[in-house]
Amino acid sequence: MIGPDDIPVLPRGVRLHRDRVRGGWVLLAPERTLALDETGRAILAEIDGIRSFAAIAAALAAAYDAPEAEIAADSQGFLGALLDRRFLEIRQ
């Protein structure tokens, strides 16, 4: 599970892509395409390989005017699933 000090990074070969035909955003990964909802895209757009998970959750909470704990819990589930599928990596 992703901890507050962990720094999430999208590894090489995993990238956000605007789907100009269907509209919206997708995450392109080796042999997989994940359609992203607004929340998923917002979380992934914050990942810069520099800031920790705690910092990202705080930024999202501020941007969406939502409780930080709630945002952290939601993002943790989403990012955890990406970790398991190797679409995401952690830098400590």
Binding site: H17, D19, V21, R22, V26, L28, E31, T33
Partner: peptide, 9 residues
């Protein structure tokens, strides 16, 4: 790509 293909093998 214009048609909507995202992944090319």
């Amino acid at each position: 790509a214009d048609l909507g293909v995202l992944q090319l093998h």
